[in-house]
Design a protein around this nucleic acid. Sequence first.
DNA 1: GCGACAG
DNA 2: ATCTTGTCGC
Length: 216
Amino acid sequence: MNLYELKAIQLELSQKVRLTPFSGPVRHVAGCDVSYNRAKNEMTAVVAVLEYPSLKLIEIASHTAMVEFPYIPTFLSFRELPSLLEAFKKVKIKPELIVVDGQGIAHPRKLGIAAHFGVTVGIPTIGCAKSHLFGKYVMPGEKRGEWKPLLDKDGDVIGAVVRTRDRVKPVFISPGHLIDVKSSVEWILKLTKGFKLPEPIRFADSISRRISHEGI
DNA sequence: GCGACAG
DNA sequence: ATCTTGTCGC
């Protein structure tokens, strides 16, 4: 498999992405993240399931595996998705909405890891990234809730730069699958409680780090 | 050709 | 992502 073939896979899968308004109902929401243990050359993927709207953690599923694909910008899903899917198989309480750490369709071939995950499992997903990968934008205002659109080369809206906390760097939101930009922004704000990152991602992040570094 | 570049 | 201490601000 070379990068040209992987690009072809991304282009084909991106045709399956469906962008549609999403309002719920949501009883359970999950967060996905992956951490690495450099010394062991291992990665640990975690799916954290929270109850909504309480946002209390009710289930954790994880999967640890050897790293066998390098990090190449725009090909992140080929590195992290396999482990994430293994972890998701272990989840008993299937969520109605999933937030994935990374881009959704805000990607050169419209298939960031959140979109790839979404079309694979067939559940609504939102991509929530801590930094920019693709798309043009202007900085949103400094207040929580303010946001600006992420635009592709044709000027189409592919996501949003959202201020989830006053005067803190914004997050890059984009729909993964079965949701649209407007609903994605609304849900990310509902899932954010006093921190830059939404609660599902915060849980998945801290848990995956604890497992990969302490083996808990 | 050059710069940018999720995690 | 990870490596890393103290430190500035609310």
